[in-house]
Nucleic acid binder design. Structure first.
Length: 882
RNA sequence: GGGCAGUUAGCUCAGCUGGAAGAGCAAUUCCCUUACAAGGAAUAGGUCGCAGGUUCAAUUCCUGCACUGCUCACCA
């Protein structure tokens, strides 16, 4: 074995092995419990970023852990076609050639899309392989492949026939750049600086006027009323009066509506029903005219000729100028939220448009119920409330998009010979109908729109298990509902909530039992990683520089449930060092193993150190397992690190060397058996997070030919070595050792110099323990001989420490600096005096002694005692030195 | 405006069923000791955001406040 863990070759080897041997392919097996995860399908446009690396590392950890527990695990891979986002990417490529999608036409453009997807769509899946993900690659799915397409059509038809899907002209969020409608959650609001224009609306037959405040003067052209709050005294007399719309000279009414806030602006609001959702609702309540003035390309229409064709911003400028002379009271700078397209950041225009909608009311209620009943549980639970609140306020989902890349809406219209639509009801169907049931017509045209990409995503847990083709297939019946969904919170509404709705509607069952929500990866300054900020850390680069296990460990360790994490090269470096530590500790054991012929499976812990490390390990492994179970992956990683480094390596391996170096083969074998026993289980426990290095060492330890840690199971045998007293005994020894080490260090005794020690027994509580285990002290504190005794006089030129019932003298003839020792002892004396003071005050407090539990009182008493002893001894010693 | 997090050592974060403040990185000192210098030993550094309350005891529980971040929302 190399002195340094060389990860590159080893990682490549295991990646290939897991895939070629199909270690993670899963078949239904009734004799085992399933554990299922479906991957949040990455978009085919993407390559692996830190967010993917985190998300998939966490899933892989769960999968590998459950596999060790004996579950029949399935993790389904796949990618998402990514609707608008992907189309935009290909459109940009076309633009470089100086072309638009219209130059190609729908069919040719789609060919281009498919070609692009076939060339680059698998990039990210290959990167997941490199990350070590235990996915069942034979089940790789794509949201637009045949099976998934069937599922989408089937679902649409189901909703359509149930009357839940309908088409209508409604006010929708429109992206003029993508030229498509968006759903409410696809709009991102950002605060921006703008103005608030105060415009005078003259009252008919009067010299008076009402002033309205608006951020959008250009929409004045589409106003059909001015609204005020019914309780607003200022305007009470004006409700019902007629106003003259400036510039347009049209008559509009003053209406009263509860939604108006008296305290904002002037308390009077212009109502533009065709281009504002609040105004649209007011219009419904007051039966107002809806006047469309903005077109689907974001330009003015349908109004006075001089504005037609202007963009919204041009019109705003022009109208503001025209208002200035007679109608503008004032303009104030104002900051407010502007909706932008989540795919291209263009300002959203609310416009009236024919779209398909899905009524989600009933599904939402069911989705709320399963969360309330904890059939689906959130980890951390704090996400439950936002989830429920969102569902409670949900409006119908606009599911149609005016783009080409996606699932075309499976609705067919009966047409006449000239291609005009007949009056017949549209038909939802898998294929083009043969005959119209209404008019017996034979010609049809399919709806032009495609479905929101999130519509197919909402079906993901069902569709990847073959629901589209067969609702009763074995995989679906066995693996559904899935066990856990692991995802970041940014798609809780876009995706997670909708899968619950669809699962309950289509299969009457939740899609997953647990929802594990992790945070977002940020840079070391807490900033979100983004290309524009240039602070992106490429996970592939990290894998190459530090190793994949290091990347995974760093991510795991940072992944506190529900919290964002800051990560940098330092995190990866620490993780790489840990991997190297595991490597070297194992190397040490394996080297010693090579020197003996065979090892017994069973062993009998004979020494304090053995029982101690086995007890510590039992504690740690219980903790680690329970952390994995409860999605506290960060805690699991920390416990793995702490146990291995500070307990196993720093103490136990060091102590084991006493016996490993011994000539007695039996002694040697015994301690090696324990080292190996712990190492093996430790490797299992660490393998979900660090699968590569643990696989490699496991194989070396067991059998170079065939032993696979990923296919091993946790042993059920409880060896029950645990002894509480061993923990206490060992910590007494450790305390003595570290005190001597400190003493040596402060006296500048070189670590390579062996010295002798005198242990003056002050209290017999630890005498036999320390005598029995004095070799530990000798070894770890570099002491060549210890003399025990009562009433040992302090030798000249020695350093002193009072600890654990002993007065320890280190004779340092020729090594000691008397002044330094005085200084040190004075400091210790002062500490001890403070301690005595504190404990004495506490014990004098009757409230404490009366009410505190006895164990607490005993502890304080013991501390008081120790302090008193220490003071006495140090005082004596100081006098001695003077 | 509503909701949710967070505020602990220079940095990144643990700890919180209430009983003497922890890790990693960075810093300082010493050491290439026969697994590991990607290492070992030791040191220094914190009135645990602020103010109250409950308690014998509060970083930990309660209340209020401040600041930071996220998120939702019809303030034109």
């Amino acid at each position: 074995m190399n002195k340094v863990y060389e990860f590159k070759e080893i990682e490549k080897k295991w990646c290939n092995f897991w895939i070629e041997k199909k270690i993670f392919s899963a078949k239904p097996d009734k004799s085992k419990k399933p554990f299922t995860i479906v991957i949040p399908p990455p978009n085919i446009t993407g390559s692996l970023h830190m967010g993917h690396a985190l998300n998939n590392t966490l899933q892989d950890i769960l999968i590998r852990f459950k596999k060790l527990q004996g579950f029949n695990v399935l993790w389904v891979p796949g990618t998402d076609h990514g609707g608008i986002a992907t189309q935009n990417v290909v459109e940009k490529l076309l633009k470089k050639e100086g072309k638009t999608k219209y130059d190609l036409g729908r069919e040719k453009f789609l060919e281009k899309m498919w070609q692009w997807r076939n060339e680059t769509g698998d990039t990210i899946l290959n990167q997941l392989k490199k990350l070590g993900c235990g996915l069942d690659w034979d089940r790789t799915a794509f949201t637009m492949d045949e099976s998934r397409s069937k599922a989408v059509k089937k679902t649409f038809i189901h909703f359509f026939n149930k009357g839940l899907i309908y088409r209508g002209k409604r006010l929708v969020n429109w992206c003029p750049r993508c030229t498509t409608a968006l759903s409410d959650i696809e709009v991102e609001y950002e605060n921006e600086k703008s103005n608030l224009w105060y415009i005078k609306y003259p009252i008919k037959n009067s010299n008076d006027f009402i002033v309205v405040a608006t951020t959008r003067p250009e929409t004045l052209l589409g106003d059909s009323a001015v609204a005020v709050n019914p309780d607003d005294e200022r305007y009470k007399n004006l409700v019902g009066k007629i106003l003259i719309l400036p510039l347009v000279n049209k008559e509009i009414k003053v209406v009263s509506d509860f939604i108006i806030d008296k305290n904002f602006g002037t308390g009077a609001v212009k109502v533009t029903p065709a281009h504002d959702s609040t105004d649209n609702e007011i219009a419904k309540r007051h039966n107002l005219e809806i006047i469309e003035i903005i077109d689907s390309d974001g330009k003015m229409i349908n109004v006075d000729g001089k504005y037609v064709g202007l963009t919204v911003l041009e019109a705003r400028k022009k109208i503001a100028e025209e208002l200035e002379t007679h109608f503008l009271e004032k303009v104030e700078p104002y900051q407010h939220a502007i909706g932008r397209c989540y795919r291209c950041s263009t300002a959203i225009e609310p416009i009236m448009s024919h779209q398909w909608f899905l009524n989600v009311k009933e599904m939402s209620e069911k989705a709320i119920d399963v969360a309330n009943e904890e059939k689906t549980k959130f980890y951390p639970s704090s996400w439950k409330k936002p989830y429920i609140l969102w569902l409670e306020n949900l409006r119908d989902w606009c599911i149609s998009r005016q783009i080409w890349w996606g699932h075309r809406i499976p609705v067919f219209y009966c047409i006449d010979d000239k291609g005009n639509k007949n009056e017949c009801p549209p038909i939802a169907s898998f294929e083009e109908p043969k005959e119209c049931p209404h008019c017996k017509g034979k010609n049809f045209t399919q709806d032009e729109d495609v479905l929101d990409t999130w519509f197919s995503s909402a079906l993901w847990p069902l569709s990847v298990l073959g629901w589209g083709e067969d609702e009763n297939n074995e995989s679906l019946n066995y693996f559904y509902p899935t066990s856990t969904l692991a995802t970041g919170h940014e798609i809780l509404y876009l995706w997670v909530a909708r899968m619950v709705q669809f699962g309950l509607e289509l299969r009457s069952d939740i899609p997953y039992k647990d929802i594990f929500i992790h945070g977002i990866v940020r840079d070391k300054h807490g900033k979100k990683m983004s290309k524009s900020l240039g602070n992106v850390i490429d996970p592939i680069g990290v894998m190459e520089n530090f190793g994949t296990d290091a990347l995974r460990f760093a991510l795991a360790q940072a992944a506190a449930p529900g919290r964002d994490m800051q990560i940098s090269d330092e995190s990866f470096l620490a993780a790489r060092n840990f991997a190297n530590k595991i490597w070297n500790a194992s190397r040490f054991i394996i080297m010693n193993l090579d020197a003996i012929d065979s090892l017994d499976d069973k062993f009998c812990p004979s020494e304090l150190a053995d029982i101690w490390i086995l007890s510590e390990f039992e504690n740690s492994s219980k903790k680690i397992k329970s952390f994995y179970e409860t999605y506290n992956i960060d805690s699991a990683a920390r416990e793995i690190y702490d146990f291995f480094w500070t307990k196993y390596c720093d103490w136990y391996i060091e102590l084991s060397k006493i016996r490993i170096m011994s000539d007695d083969i039996k002694t040697k074998k015994e301690v090696l058996s324990i080292l190996i026993y712990i190492l093996k289980i430790f490797l299992q426990l660490a393998s979900p997070i660090m699968p590569f290095i643990t696989s490699e060492i496991w194989q070396i330890l067991n059998n170079p030919d065939c032993q696979i840690i990923a296919e091993s199971h946790f042993s059920n045998d409880s060896l029950e070595f645990f002894q509480e007293t061993a923990l206490n005994k060992m910590s007494a020894i450790q305390e003595i050792i570290s005190n001597i080490r400190t003493l040596r260090s402060e006296m500048n005794i070189s670590p390579s110099v062996q010295i002798s020690a005198l242990f003056n027994i002050l209290d017999d509580k630890n005498t036999s323990l320390v005598k029995e285990n004095q070799d530990y002290i000798k070894r770890l504190a570099k002491i060549n001989s210890i003399e025990f005794g009562k009433n040992i006089e302090r030798p000249k030129n020695s350093a002193l420490e009072v600890v654990g019932g002993f007065e320890i003298f280190l004779p340092l003839e020729g090594l000691i600096d008397i002044e330094k020792e005085k200084l040190r002892l004075t400091k210790e004396l002062s500490n001890a005096k403070q301690e005595l003071e504190r404990t004495t005050v506490t014990l004098q407090n009757e409230n404490f002694t009366k009410r505190a539990p006895q164990s607490e009182i005993d502890k304080i008493k013991a501390r008081q005692n120790d302090a008193a002893t220490k003071i006495k001894k140090i005082n004596g010693s100081l006098n001695f030195l003077l």
